[in-house]
Design a protein around this nucleic acid. Structure first.
Lengths: 201, 201
DNA sequence: GTCTATAAGAGGATAGAC
DNA sequence: GTCTATCCTCTTATAGAC
């Protein structure tokens, strides 16, 4: 943690604002539909200036995805600091958190389909490292919950992990929200319930 | 069923081939990444000819989505002809079917995000009518299963319906498939299990 | 209805002055 | 590093001959 000049602080603040805008736009319309012009307009700078900070649209998106993973890691840190009793409760907390972020319009869309974004992310070691770290931390809780009989032991941990990740981009959340008939808390409670207890209960 | 001239048969066959190609490309890369040039190339005709059949890219996609709903209706018809014992078994059959179509690369991506496709589909009465019909037919089975205690009665039918629809574009399927470690049957069985029984079981 | 050729415009990226 | 102005490619859509 060396001294940081005023100029560098301004630069970091600007880059933070850029990533914020990208994050919001990725959540709102996804990578393909997001344009660099929009990002520049939202930040309030010229597009050429944007390209001085991030060399391509893909790098913009990668920065936003990395930021999202950092937020996830920070949430996991909090859970570690004052952990719920059981492993499955920790996993439920994570799912709840991803849905709150989603409802806040701040969850960048995952590259489920084979998209240009996916290729770009696979080329970012920084992103892959963080994704691996988050996956492994969740993996510990998953196997722990399976040992305790809170998660079906017959399911491969990989499947459980993917299922939890998928909740971060679950279209059901948006559909229920769009119907306008239920509170956010109710929606989240239902989705946590269907995720862990299923439709049959 | 009036007489159909040979010319009209050829025309219908061509349009069928076009919709097939669109369906495949929508499943592979989604609406935004799919280009009309690709469609024309895959069908083997000039782009201008394509536009004689379908006036815009949106109408191309709408035709593919309508086709997909027609296939769904046909599957529901089959279920009605020789129905499984319980309502929930019928719903599981539907989920299994959507996953088989998905694994075959023939499930066009649903417009979960606010996309150009979504707007176009909302403008297609034909699409909306079919979507409504499929929803209502599933809705009957959902409420029936709830009465019989096979689906949680506390869940709004709307939520159950959305959850089932979401399985048609579940990224978990693709991720498990990509891992290459499991058979299609195993993957489908797991996802049906997590959908209805949850992770906790 | 099919083709070739091209219009029209969006969007990613850069040049060059300051 | 920021700006304005511009380039260039890709993509949707159409014109016009056959």
């Amino acid at each position: 943690m060396g001294k940081i000049s005023f100029k560098e602080q301004v630069l970091q603040a600007r880059e933070h604002a850029i990533v914020d805008a990208v994050n919001r736009l990725l959540a709102e319309k996804g990578f393909d539909a997001m344009t660099v012009d929009e990002v520049a307009a939202e930040v309030g700078i010229a597009k050429a200036s944007l390209y001085k900070h991030f060399g391509s649209k893909e790098k913009l998106a990668a920065a936003a995805m990395i930021r999202a993973l950092e937020r996830a890691q920070a949430f996991l840190d909090n859970l570690d600091a004052s952990p719920p009793a059981s492993a499955v409760e920790r996993l439920k907390s994570v799912v709840r958190w991803t849905m709150e972020v989603q409802l806040a319009g701040e969850m960048p869309a995952l590259p489920a389909q084979n998209s240009a974004l996916r290729a770009a992310l696979l080329g970012s070691q920084d992103y892959l490292d963080r994704l691996m770290t988050v996956s492994e931390r969740l993996g510990v809780w998953i196997t722990e919950a399976q040992k305790q009989g809170q998660i079906q032991a017959a399911l491969p941990p990989e499947l459980v992990l993917y299922t939890l990740f998928a909740r971060a981009c679950d279209p059901v959340l948006g559909m229920l929200k769009a119907s306008g008939q239920h509170s956010n808390e109710q929606i989240i409670a239902w989705l946590v319930s269907t995720t862990f207890d299923g439709l049959s209960g």
